[in-house]
Design a protein around this nucleic acid. Structure first.
Lengths: 178, 178
DNA sequence: TTGCCCATGTAATACGTTACATGATTTC
DNA sequence: GAAATCATGTAACGTATTACATGGGCAA
């Protein structure tokens, strides 16, 4: 369901696009929130045509097909946004790693935390670059779907960094002095 | 893979258990980080027996089977924790909702944010209760896998709350005065 | 004896990833 | 003419959810 909603959201905010375009847009914009490759996107678009949420125009160069959101499609995203009961379930490998951290002894756990920290920093860097791009585009008047999600992502990532620092300090405090 | 690791982690920290026990433990402890029901857990345990990561003892009352982690099983979790390259990919419906928020107009977006806020508050409450239980058990000397993950979860949830507040303020500032 | 919890499993369906497969157009 | 990018799709496999199905043991 979420993939469908994400696609409808992109089509709704940036107008008609091909499966290829949407795949690229996924990578560039929505990727930090939801991931999907072309092998998932093409079949989903086909299903949405059947369900009347998008229409497909005539084939262009290189077999390119352009999809346009329909009234029903628009209604569908709006319904999802306004009527869905939010579910706060998370499934995160890094959180699982945090969960299992006490299985390692002090030095090993610190090493694992160090690796996690680099990954988090890399993510933060990526998000901040995205935000910079975003701001440049906003200045030229383009719409900015995803602005709030970027803020959230950056805040969450910074929180993760704080957690890693605090956890490392805690582990060090528990280790016998050398 | 992660389900397997989670199960091995639980078996490693709290000793032999049945599929039923593990299902319950999932609900109570690891649930905020990873979710799995019995229909996923039973087959996975069977596969792990084949792969030599756990052994199954004789059947007890009501067909109960007790699984014990093997040396290979222990090695497997440790490998995962110490050798895996951490991946920071997230897939979150609430983040998707945040992403698409600009599709709604001011009042609608505020209403959606309000619904999100209640959900986040409910989650925070759940996590804090879990933490209280955790502390009671720690006082009685029991091991505390999941302590760090709980901290992380609580921090992240509070961050989400802050984000929701800030976003609501931003939306209000953009709305034409009544 | 009825209902609840313990205890295990399978089936159908959906969602997601990686790999395979093909061909047109542009750019160097 | 070779390489990169545009453009679409399918297949195989793995993971996750929901529903179906069964039966033992205990307590009211």
């Amino acid at each position: 369901m979420s993939l469908r909603i994400a696609l409808l959201g992109l089509l709704s905010s940036s107008g008609p696009a091909s499966g290829y375009d949407l795949t690229k847009k996924f990578e560039r914009s929505i990727n930090h929130v939801w991931q999907a490759g072309h092998s998932q996107i093409y079949p989903e678009l086909a299903k949405m045509v059947i369900d009347g949420l998008v229409t497909v125009g005539a084939e262009g160069a290189r077999g390119r097909k352009t999809y346009t959101i329909t009234r029903e499609g628009t209604a569908e995203v709006r319904r999802w946004l306004t009527e869905r009961t939010p579910t706060e379930a998370t499934r995160s490998e890094s959180a699982l790693e945090a969960f299992l951290l006490p299985l390692l002894d002090g030095p090993e756990a610190l090493a694992a935390l160090a690796r996690m920290t680099s990954a988090i920093e890399a993510k933060l860097k990526g998000l901040e670059e995205l935000q910079a791009t975003h701001r440049r585009e906003a200045a030229t008047g383009r719409t900015h779907l995803g602005h709030y999600a970027l803020n959230l992502g950056i805040m969450q990532t910074k929180t993760a960094l704080t957690w890693a620092k605090e956890t490392a300090a805690d582990l060090e405090a528990r280790m016998p002095p050398t």
